[in-house]
Amino acid sequence: MLHLALAFAIGCFALALLLNLWRLATAPQITDRILAVDTMVVNIIALIVLYGVQTGSTLGFDAAMLFAMTGFVSTVAFCKYLLRGGIIE
């Protein structure tokens, strides 16, 4: 049962990633693109962790954590650049 649920969840997040990619390609505004990339990061974190559960190794979890941190910082940095025209104040 766990294998089926795992496969289902991986399928869901992979599909979500594809939808995000489609949004990224067709986004009408720059904020939508940032939002699409931000959502992609979150979905990729879920995929990495699910892959770790499937293979039974915790090696990928560090990568997932780094992804979470750099994803957040890059979203904020991008917004800050658009808001102020510079990142460091």
């Binding site: 289902f8 969840a9 869901c12 939808l19 949004r23 879920a46």
Partner: peptide, 17 residues
């Protein structure tokens, strides 16, 4: 939990579209 999580992740990305 996995099924609920997957569904909500999909709904979030679907809503984005």
């Amino acid at each position: 939990l996995l099924v609920i999580g997957g569904l909500f992740g999909l709904i979030g990305s679907f809503g984005l579209l």
